[in-house]
């Protein structure tokens, strides 16, 4: 069951993203999701595709400040994922069809999910880590 859920994860280069995606589209696959995991020196994006019950993911590792082409020309429905990833991770995705100019969530702090800022946030808020009466102090 796990195999079926996970599918196969294929690491590829940034340059191969558009040709590979195009090939999958011609073979009848559809975009299931785009996933991003942030790290201190960039991000790792997984584009998952589905055909019937099968799932296959293309994984791209993007160093910080490296532009990444948008797949919206091939899968127009990807604009939500790409806008979100650009907002929350600060990945430079270029030429998104349906660009929201960084206004998806309009969160107060930028690049929330990249690892650098998480440390910054958690060090600002020491009460959260220790647990206990964080909410009590606020509400009482």
């Amino acid at each position: 069951m796990t195999e079926q859920h996970n599918g196969s994860i294929i690491p590829i280069e940034i340059g191969a993203l558009l040709p590979e995606t195009d090939a999958l589209r011609s073979a009848g696959w559809r975009l299931v999701q785009v996933l991003c995991v942030g790290s201190a020196d960039g991000a790792e994006l997984s584009y998952s595709f589905g055909l019937d019950l099968e799932m296959r993911s293309l994984r791209v590792t993007v160093p910080a400040e490296t532009p990444l082409p948008s797949v919206t020309a091939i899968y127009p429905g990807a604009f939500l994922y790409e806008n979100e990833i650009r907002d929350l991770f600060g990945v430079r995705i270029e030429r998104i069809a349906g660009d929201w100019e960084g206004k998806v969530y309009d969160v107060a702090m930028g690049k929330l999910f990249s690892k650098v800022s998480i440390k910054a946030i958690s060090s600002e808020d020491p009460g959260a880590a220790t647990g206990g009466a964080a909410s009590m102090g606020g509400a009482l």
Partner: peptide, 15 residues
């Protein structure tokens, strides 16, 4: 009341 389980989320400013 207090933010509940989301009290510690970055985009929640409280009750």
């Amino acid at each position: 009341y207090s933010g509940g389980v989301f009290a510690e989320c970055y985009n929640v400013s409280g009750g």
